[in-house]
Simulated scan of single mutants.
Amino acid sequence: MLQVESVFQNVNGKPILDQVSFHVKKGSCFGIIGPNGSGKTTLLKSISGYYRPVSGTIRFQGKEVHEFSRKKLAQKMAVLSQESLPNYPITVFDTVLMGRYPHLKWYQREGKKDLEKVDEILELTSLTHLREQTLDTLSGGERQRVAIAKAMAQEPELLLLDEPTTYLDIGHQISLLKLVKTWQNESGLTVIMVLHDLNLASQFCDQLLLLHQGKVVKIGSSKEVIKKDMLEKVYETIPEIIPHPKTDVPQVILGI
């Protein structure tokens, strides 16, 4: 699905990523973790085609990302940033409908199938009751759910999430990630997400990539990556690692 090979990246002349390489399998959930300033968001923007690597390659479905037209890429890849949607007076329905635009020809209006698709997604995401409400009247958690619905309307094969749970309370965090997981399981979607919360990353991602100062420290399962000595070195703190009582995946408790 996605191959990142020896990517070196500068932003405004400053080195951010240094020889980053990894592969993501179709239908998997791949998590990117690491402290602030480690290059997580830059890596995601490089995958999305927003940045072009100084050197190295990023191939999506066997083709370099920058070789896709923006419209064609938007038909295959959706991006959700941590800022979610702007606080504009646009209805929920019209916002989600925007996700259909990459599939329309120039000057083509939305058809019956597009409108029905949006209604179907609003039902799936439990947003039907907010259909005619505007974004500026919604809570942060509701706007983030609308952002996911808009991405679903794109019908992408790859979803990129940049800290999607930022600013959300724990209930909305779990609800949002469960929604993405259900979508993934039902459609074969591939997900790459940047997460600050190591416990959520451990629970929802099939594989994790730990970044530090733009370099790959470790790639593997949560049990291979969420380790006391590794986290102590990268995050400069002393964590305690315990198994989750239900799933057995590692969970982090911070010492005082």
Rank of each mutant, 00 (worst) to 15 (best):
I90Y: 15
I90R: 10
V92T: 04
V92D: 05
V92S: 01
V92P: 02
F93K: 11
D94Q: 14
D94T: 02
D94M: 04
T95P: 08
T95L: 00
T95W: 02
V96T: 09
L97V: 07
L97K: 07
L97E: 05
R100C: 12
Y101D: 00
Y101A: 13
H103W: 13
H103Q: 13
H103P: 04
L104H: 10
L104W: 08
L104A: 12
K105P: 00
K105I: 00
K105C: 01
K105H: 05
W106D: 01
W106C: 02
Y107V: 06
Y107T: 07
Y107S: 06
Q108K: 04
Q108M: 00
R109Y: 01
R109W: 10
R109V: 01
E110T: 07
G111C: 12
G111I: 06
K112S: 15
K113T: 15
K113G: 00
L115P: 00
L115D: 03
E116I: 03
E116H: 03
K117P: 00
K117H: 13
K117A: 14
V118T: 12
V118M: 02
D119N: 15
E120G: 02
E120K: 11
E120T: 10
E120H: 08
E120I: 00
I121E: 03
I121R: 04
L122K: 11
L122N: 03
L122I: 10
E123N: 14
T125D: 05
T125H: 05
S126H: 15
S126L: 10
S126Y: 13
L127M: 01
L127Y: 01
T128F: 12
T128D: 12
T128I: 13
H129I: 06
E132Y: 12
E132R: 14
E132H: 15
E132D: 15
T134W: 04
T134E: 14
L135A: 08
L135V: 04
L135G: 06
L135Q: 08
D136I: 07
T137N: 13
T137Q: 14
L138D: 03
L138Q: 02
S139R: 13
S139V: 11
S139Q: 12
S139T: 14
S139A: 06
S139D: 06
S139I: 13
G140Y: 08
G140P: 13
G140K: 11
G141Y: 07
G141F: 08
G141T: 11
E142R: 02
E142V: 00
E142P: 04
R143D: 02
Q144R: 14
V146M: 09
V146A: 05
V146N: 09
A147F: 04
A147M: 03
A147C: 13
I148P: 01
A149W: 13
A149Y: 09
K150H: 06
K150N: 11
A151R: 05
M152I: 11
M152K: 03
A153K: 03
Q154M: 10
Q154K: 09
E155W: 05
P156E: 10
P156H: 10
P156F: 12
P156D: 10
E157D: 10
E157I: 01
E157V: 01
